[in-house]
């Protein structure tokens, strides 16, 4: 089934940039653009030009900063509060019964840790 697309411009050729750019490259270009803008702005202020415009916010500049609050600790197994840490596996746990479960667990701690974003170093 082919639907005609008369509205398309037959003379249009693809922009070569289109394919090559990946996520990282786009963000790097964005960062570079912002740096150049800030540089010109600084230069203009130094030159004493009146009414210099602020550098507009960019995709990267509005990104949320890392948290400054203390991280809450939750039990890796149950999701309840996790005040304790098992020194052997690094798992946080809620109480004695969960600790017993951790002891009896067959080496799956790294999956629990990676759910929390911790990638343990293999000893």
């Amino acid at each position: 089934m082919y639907t005609p697309r008369p509205f398309k411009n037959p003379n249009y050729t693809k922009n070569v940039n289109r394919r090559m750019r990946n996520y990282k490259a786009v963000l790097a270009a964005e960062r570079e653009r912002e740096r150049v803008l800030r540089e010109t702005q600084r230069q203009q202020i130094a030159d004493g030009i009146e009414g210099v415009e602020d550098v507009p916010p960019t995709y990267l500049s509005i990104e949320a900063p890392p948290s400054l609050l203390p991280q809450p600790h939750y039990c890796d197994i149950t999701g309840l509060e996790g005040p304790y840490t098992d020194p052997a596996t690094g798992l946080r746990y809620h109480d004695k019964s969960v600790y017993e479960f951790i002891r009896g667990m067959a080496r799956t701690e790294k999956f629990y840790l990676s759910a929390r974003g911790v990638n343990p170093i293999v000893k």
């Binding site: 949320a64 890392p66 948290s67 609050l69 991280q71 809450p72 999701g79 759910a115 929390r116 974003g117």
Partner: peptide, 23 residues
């Protein structure tokens, strides 16, 4: 069970899921 609240809670503390972002 707890997952029902634990998952939306990540918006308020993404560190739960290993993202180092302010909630």
């Amino acid at each position: 069970s707890l997952e029902r609240w634990r998952v939306p809670e990540t918006w308020w503390s993404p560190s739960m899921a290993g993202a180092d972002i302010a909630g």
